[in-house]
Amino acid sequence: MNELAFAVVGTSTIADSMVDMIHQCSCARYRGSMSRDAARAASTTERLGGTTPYTSIEEVCRDAAVDAVYIASPNALHVDQALACIRAGKHVLVEKPLAPNERLACLVFDEAAAHGVVALEAMRSVHDPAYETLRAAVERIGRVRRASLRFGKYSSRYDEVLAGRQTNIFDARMASGSLMDIGVYCVAAMVHLFGAPEDISCTPVLIADAENEATGGVIDGAGTILARYPDKVVELSYSKISQDLLPCQIEGELGTVTYGGVSVPSRASVRLRGQAVRGAWTAEAQSTGDETEDLALAACDNNMCYELDNFCACVAGEMDAARYRDITLASLAIMDEARRQAGIVFPADR
């Protein structure tokens, strides 16, 4: 596999984490970072061991030494930056969500196909082998009837909202909010495990209305999506304004799989049900002879390594990127409908 020279768009902590993985990957090499602030671009590139800082996406596109671009800018900028790189013949690995909506994601994928390059969403959970271990465990618990996938952590940026100040993480103009920033992990995991549902209903927790200038209009801080399948129901819970301490759970007729961390799976187990107890409403026990087994998940300090490895494999023609494209598009279609029900509108939707 040939080594890919990467330019990185953005100077956030997530961008630093990807550069760390690039340095550890035999198929990738870090060239430099882009920031509109020339001093920041230069200092970040030097700090991270690169050679060439950039102050615009045009500079990145003109650099013939760049093979691939990792885009970790605000959500609303992803599509324009990805299209510019694609049209310059660069492969693109775009932070989640790849686009504000399904329509624009289709445009990115279509342009990538037309220009013979790879476009991939950097959705870490979809590439983490831990989900293959979970999938194998799910096959042991019989027909799945219910699942609860959840992710909630309090964002310090919410303090800015409470103070009436603008922050990109809670701004409709930036195609952000709780669903797009953190709920997307739950949606992608559901699609990865079960495929797309027949329909969904979304109950959001809105933290701003259409008149709020600081947030660019209606925006969510938390929410729940109920996804209906022919034989099961899946609950997705997400929040950036509170902490969720419960594990994810997948319930089958023969047992239950639990695990922590929908984006970085950990502490997983499968409990196979024994004999059901009649009249269990009078006692704590619901069944006897249950068997619980801890699941061995691949240990990894930073599971962004898996999406990087798969991206390089797709560029080398060793892996088909279509399966990941389909998950991205199905996930965005779900989120488009959830936002429609919540009344959350981005400029890109118009």
Rank of each mutant, 00 (worst) to 15 (best):
E58D: 15
G261K: 02
T224N: 09
P74T: 11
C85W: 10
P247K: 12
T11P: 02
V108Y: 13
T133F: 04
N303V: 01
D37Y: 06
E111R: 10
C305M: 07
A41W: 08
A188F: 00
A268L: 03
A136M: 06
E251Y: 01
D326S: 07
A285N: 09
A222E: 15
R103N: 05
L93F: 08
C85F: 13
D199A: 09
V191L: 00
A42R: 12
G142E: 00
T215Y: 02
E291D: 08
V69P: 03
Y54P: 11
A105G: 10
Y185S: 08
S178D: 09
R36S: 15
R87H: 15
T13D: 04
Y324S: 09
S178W: 10
G260N: 04
V69K: 00
R325L: 01
N212F: 00
V94M: 10
M123L: 13
A163C: 08
A84S: 10
Y70A: 10
A175V: 01
R31Y: 02
P129K: 09
A189S: 13
V19G: 12
A130E: 05
P347W: 10
T258E: 07
E291F: 01
D63F: 02
Q286P: 00
E337W: 06
L83F: 06
G164N: 06
G274P: 05
A136T: 08
V270L: 07
N168C: 01
D37K: 14
A39W: 03
M335A: 08
A113E: 11
L77W: 06
A189C: 09
A41H: 09
M18S: 03
A299H: 11
